[in-house]
Design a protein around this nucleic acid. Structure first.
Lengths: 155, 155
DNA sequence: TGTATTGATGGACAATTTGCTCAATTGCTA
DNA sequence: TAGCAATTGAGCAAATTGTCCATCAATACA
């Protein structure tokens, strides 16, 4: 479950310039093309690289408001059916179960503060959700990133 | 700031099979290649598509533990220098400022619960951080996703 | 010590894709 | 109705891809 420096450099390179392709990557890293291909295949096979899909910025789609909603759920029902219903709401971007009494934490986006109310109402209406409490993200000084982690993991 | 159904279908297609390329995409969508190229250029120019870099799974790198850490910071210093220092910690994957008294919320990963203590100590040591409180993500029934949002936004 | 195994290398090949340009057509709006 | 932006289909050279292969070095194992 470890990666070496070549892996880390390869990932960083592709993260910064995704369009360069395998051949150009091998040139930049001074290794054979087959090596790059093999590394990428292995990283994908090991699950380190999950995918290459386009990364979407919800704000650019008009979803300017991000909030973290903590929910308390009814214990009897279990959290699986709740998560399944939350997954049906497009504005719910991710859901975690967290420590502290069967609670859940989810990240949601909305078009405005008023729209956030609508989204929260959708969540409250989910069967099994007892109570919610939300905090709004005002600013994101460090957007989601994994590159520093990759660099640190590259032995 | 809106996308149409073709945009949405294109994004979804590329998200599911990123390796197919422009030409194959155009075939699948029954449009001309130039159209796909123009759409992708426009989506990138508008900031909807941020990038195509490889998506990394921290868990596959050995960082199995995810936690959300809420921090209270000293008001006088402001949050910018705090965020800058948090950004130096590789295990800090994202940082938000949130509503409720100058607080911040950050997502961190660690190799184990014991390792999480080390990471939290790093955060507490940041100049300006007064207190932290963390919740550990036990499970992630809905991993981060934007496709449903894209589909919903596609008019 | 001898022997597989794994990963990296460099080369080769055909097939495909890309980047770019062009003219014609479509659909919408002022 | 005139104008404009988007789409289409086509063509072209250049580059990249997918897929082989033989060789070599380092490692693990009997």
């Amino acid at each position: 479950m470890t990666i070496d420096q070549l892996d880390a450099r390869l990932i960083s390179l592709l993260a910064e310039e995704p369009r360069i392709g395998v051949l150009e990557s091998s040139r930049r890293l001074n290794v054979a093309r087959g090596t790059v291909q093999a590394r990428l295949d292995r990283l994908a096979a090991r699950g380190v690289i999950v995918g290459y899909g386009p990364q979407i910025d919800p704000a650019a789609l008009g979803y300017d408001v991000t909030a973290f909603v903590t929910l308390q759920i009814r214990q009897v029902s279990g959290h699986v059916p709740v998560a399944d219903r939350l997954a049906l709401v497009p504005e719910v971007l991710e859901v975690h179960t967290i420590t502290g009494g069967g609670d859940m934490l989810c990240r949601v986006v909305a078009r405005s503060n008023a729209d956030l109310q609508r989204v929260i109402d959708l969540i409250v209406d989910v069967e099994g959700v007892v109570r919610t409490s939300s905090v709004i993200a005002l600013d994101t000084p460090v957007p989601y990133r994994t590159l520093p982690l990759v660099a640190a993991a590259g032995t």
